[in-house]
Design a protein around this nucleic acid. Sequence first.
DNA 1: GCAAATTAATGATTTATTCAAG
DNA 2: CTTGAATAAATCATTAATTTGC
Lengths: 186, 186
Amino acid sequence: MSQTNSTTRWCPTPEQLMILEEMYASGVRNPNASQIQQITSHLSLYGKIEGKNVFYWFQNHKARDRQKLRHKNLPHPSDEASPPTSVHHEGPSNFLTQGCFQDATSQEMNLVGKLESAAAGGERQEAAVTASSSMEGDHPPRADVGFTVSSCLKPLKTLDLFPTKHEYSSSSSSSSKSSSRSKSTH
Amino acid sequence: MSQTNSTTRWCPTPEQLMILEEMYASGVRNPNASQIQQITSHLSLYGKIEGKNVFYWFQNHKARDRQKLRHKNLPHPSDEASPPTSVHHEGPSNFLTQGCFQDATSQEMNLVGKLESAAAGGERQEAAVTASSSMEGDHPPRADVGFTVSSCLKPLKTLDLFPTKHEYSSSSSSSSKSSSRSKSTH
DNA sequence: GCAAATTAATGATTTATTCAAG
DNA sequence: CTTGAATAAATCATTAATTTGC
């Protein structure tokens, strides 16, 4: 059995890539766990894929797109690194920030944690909690944004929806990593 | 390619980390601007550091500690596999109403002002922008691999965007994926 | 023609920043 | 003022293309 997915990283198939790109073009940018689950289930039919892959894909795609776009608009050859006149920046007006430092799996991991647990070719999806309504981070002027994708195959039908449970399943294994990432070269 | 590791992210050195932890252990939790400045000056001798790094470090450390503590105290050995389930946060209105300001307490702003003085201050959030052009004929760097599913009987219908949005998942880690910088098979 | 080495692309992880609720 | 989560940016790591050498 070859660890198709152990040490190897996800290799998007053309079909998957196409669908993902179509979704992205349609406006999908930050799908939730539920959305990711659906997408994953859909794409899993084309090949092995996990929810986290979908999540990462959208994140990377968006970030890179933006980065590239930004690079294009870099006509600032005669300026310095000190824009004193603009007060635009809002710095941490709110001194409250939360994140993580060394170990501690935080934000994305939370979402990914669930994603990597389900889907992946099996029909084991169990995530679905539609609570709020809204779109992703960007909220285009339009209300409904539909993505045009082949909705032909997709056994997905019984999406669970049990919003009445909030138990922690974490094994709480104090994973102490605290190991500085090998900077290597640096 | 090439880790443009120059002035991007603060890399806490062991010495700095040690000192910070010591301070934290001593009871320091939220140092003021003066304190932060002092600490920064002290730590700067061990390596590059900014006031904002110090502040963030304390905030994150504190939050992280509490979060972990919480994990340990939240066994709930009932069921598991309950990913989503929004915990609290019943606010369905998630329309990104960022038009409101809360600069009521200028205390933090005052402090930040100093810390941000030396901050590189790159860009800031620009969300809500680029929304105009939702459809971009942008093509991925990958040339088509020759896969054409044009005949996929795709009715090209516009499915409604999943009405799901921010749904909190307190599951948090428990991801049994050590991951980390492990080479493995290679 | 194929194989090893290099480079580019991209998936996966971590960190930084901001928002919202308590 | 504190905490918690979600997001975006940055970075790392691995895969895949491409180039060069036999």
